[in-house]
């Protein structure tokens, strides 16, 4: 092991050499693994934050679980229910489309809510009727 004096002497010699011709030290570098993970995480977070958000999906999620399954034995009543449900679904599809086109328009958002509420009411009405 070097003594302090030896270290000083080598350091002084290095200083003298640095004035003219610094030693060539081949340095091999690699990207730190932690840095790679951090970059991947940042990219992932950025992609998550910048992902396109569906404003209609947010409205739809508010009604998740409120559409109960309807069992109607009477074939005529079932046809009537399916026709009514198809119309409500069309209204919902139109409203969702309008919301996606104009996310800032509150009228379209309200229309979308109304369409979903109509579907909820329709299902409840047929559950009670059957």
């Amino acid at each position: 092991m070097m003594s302090d004096d030896e270290l000083r002497s080598v350091a002084r010699a290095l200083g003298a050499r640095l004035e003219t011709d610094p030693p060539k030290v081949p340095v091999r570098r690699r990207v730190r693994r932690v840095a790679l993970i951090a970059i991947a995480l940042m990219l992932g977070a950025g992609a998550f934050i910048a992902r396109p958000r569906d404003p209609a999906a947010a409205i739809e999620s508010a009604y998740a679980g409120r559409f109960a399954e309807v069992r109607i034995e009477d074939p005529e009543l079932r046809r009537e229910f399916e026709a009514a449900l198809a119309q409500v679904e069309r209204a919902i599809a139109l409203a969702k489309d309008a919301v996606r086109r104009s996310p800032g328009n509150t009228d379209f958002s309200e229309l979308c809510h109304v369409a979903f509420q109509a579907k909820v009411r329709l299902i409840q009405a047929y559950i009670q009727g059957s």
Partner: peptide
């Protein structure tokens, strides 16, 4: 970000001791 890879152990009789210190 670019970590320096550990240098290969230099032989004990390396003539360029200043290079080793500088490294």
């Amino acid at each position: 970000l670019l970590e320096e890879m550990p240098a290969q152990p230099a032989p004990a009789a390396d003539p360029d001791r200043l290079g080793r210190l500088y490294g």
